[in-house]
């Protein structure tokens, strides 16, 4: 599941993306000097409670973090060995809290709202003549097409297995590449047929100047 967004209405969904991201930044700074494990534990519990207020779908996403546990265990052990038990526990709790909060924002913020909130930060790039909307667009496209490409991989794998393909799976790289290029051709065509990506930029700018129509 790449598109993590949970389609529902919760209080967190209603909060604007900018406020959520600012809150995350503030909490990150706030947690940094905290030395008492009990305080951090409180933050961690509050974070988990926030998941609960969003609902069952959000809580279920916590299971997805299972894959991160070995990594956390490793960091904890290394820190314990190098700086001691208490600082290791602090570090892991701080990291866990922040990752969970960031993940919660991903779960409750739509892609385009997130982009609208983040895009002003890229404004300096415009001085270098880089079209920031294109960056936003590329991110959106990537998120949209990962499940599509996964389906292509699965189809190829099925076709491979159905004919007794064997273990030399690397040989699928070339057909996968060819299919991806074909896919990108079709997407480019569909994109052009609906007005392309260059026009929204110019039209938005025209809107801002109030001279459009």
């Amino acid at each position: 599941m790449i598109s993590l967004y949970i389609a529902q209405k919760s209080w967190l969904h209603r909060l604007s993306a900018g406020i959520k991201l600012l809150f995350l930044a503030a909490i990150s700074l706030l947690l940094y000097p905290v030395e008492q494990p009990s305080v951090l534990l409180l933050f961690l519990i509050a974070t988990l409670l926030a998941y609960a207020t969003v609902g069952y779908a959000a809580l279920r996403q916590l299971l997805a973090l299972k894959t991160l546990l070995p990594l956390f265990a490793l960091i904890f052990l290394l820190q314990w060995w190098s700086v001691g038990f208490a600082p290791a526990a602090l570090l892991v709790m701080r990291m866990l809290t922040l990752i969970l909060l960031a993940n919660l924002i991903t779960l409750t913020t739509r892609m385009d709202d997130m982009m609208d909130a983040v895009m002003p930060l890229f404004a300096p790039l415009r001085l270098l003549k880089i079209e920031t909307r294109r960056i936003a667009f590329a991110v959106t496209l990537l998120i949209r097409f990962i499940p599509v490409l996964m389906a292509v991989v699965n189809h190829l794998l099925d076709a491979w297995k159905a004919r007794g393909g064997g273990r030399k799976l690397w040989r699928l790289v070339i057909p996968l590449t060819i299919q991806s290029i074909r896919l990108s051709d079709s997407v480019a065509e569909a994109l052009a047929a609906r007005g392309g990506i260059s026009s929204p930029l110019t039209q938005d700018q025209l809107h801002q100047k109030g001279s459009f129509r």
Binding site: Y5, A7, T140, A192, A193, R194
Partner: peptide
């Protein structure tokens, strides 16, 4: 060009997965 024509000619392709550009 297709960008200009898009307001006048709508185009539906064979495979919707090649046509849908956004996640939601």
């Amino acid at each position: 060009g297709p960008e200009k024509m898009s307001a006048h000619v709508g185009f539906i392709f064979q495979n919707p997965d090649h046509q849908i550009i956004f996640p939601t």
